[in-house]
C-alpha cells in the first residue's frame, strides 16, 4: 500500500502532527486519527453542517476538505470553543436556552454561530437564518437556536 502523508497543522492553537491517507477527509482525520470526535458526520457531502470547523478563519464543512490540505493551516473545532472550563457565550446561550435536543448538530451550529457573531455582532433574525442555512437541525425547528444566537449576541456585547 502506498505510504501515508505526514501533515503538520495547528488545531485549536496547538501544533499537531499526524499521518493520513490523502483520501481521508479532514473530518476523518479529526475524528479517527487525532481523536477529536466533537465534529460530527451527518451526510459526508457538505449539506448538513454537523462537521463545521474554522479553516484559516472561515467556516467550512470538514467532510469536504482533505486531511492533507490542513498542512500549515489553522483549524478551530468545537473542542476549542470553550476557554478551559468556562463556556463560550454561544455555548452558554445554547445550553440555557434549550437550543438543543439530541445534540448531534449542536457542535456545528455553535462553531458556525460563533463565527457569525465574531464578524457581525448584532445580526438580524434573517441574517442568522441565512448564515446557518448550511446547518441542518431536525429536532428543534430552529426557533430556540435562532433565539440562542440572539441571546449570545447580547452576552458577547455585555462581556
Amino acid at each position: 500500500m502506498p505510504s501515508k502523508t505526514h501533515v503538520q497543522t495547528t488545531i485549536n492553537g496547538e501544533q499537531v502532527d499526524f499521518l493520513c491517507e490523502p483520501r481521508q477527509s479532514l473530518l476523518e482525520v479529526l475524528r479517527d486519527v487525532i481523536g477529536l470526535t466533537g465534529s460530527k458526520e451527518g451526510c459526508n457531502d457538505g449539506n448538513c453542517g454537523a462537521c463545521t470547523v474554522v479553516f484559516d478563519g472561515r467556516i467550512v464543512t470538514s467532510c469536504l476538505v482533505l486531511g492533507v490540505e490542513a498542512a500549515g493551516k489553522e483549524i478551530g473545532t468545537i473542542e476549542g470553543v470553550a476557554s478551559g472550563s468556562t463556556l463560550h457565550p454561544v455555548q452558554a446561550a445554547f445550553l440555557e436556552g434549550a437550543a438543543l435536543q439530541c445534540g448531534i448538530c449542536t457542535p456545528g451550529f455553535i462553531v458556525a454561530s460563533k463565527a457569525l457573531l465574531e464578524q457581525n455582532p448584532n445580526p438580524t433574525e434573517h441574517e442568522i437564518r441565512f448564515w446557518l442555512a448550511n446547518n441542518l437541525c431536525r429536532c428543534t425547528g430552529y426557533d430556540k437556536i435562532v433565539r440562542a444566537v440572539q441571546d449570545a449576541a447580547v452576552r458577547m456585547q455585555e462581556a
Binding site: G46, T52, W131
Partner: peptide, 9 residues
C-alpha cells in the same frame, strides 16, 4: 452557491 460553509471553499 451552497451555504456559508460551502462558500468558504
Amino acid at each position: 452557491i451552497g451555504g456559508t460553509q460551502i462558500q468558504g471553499r
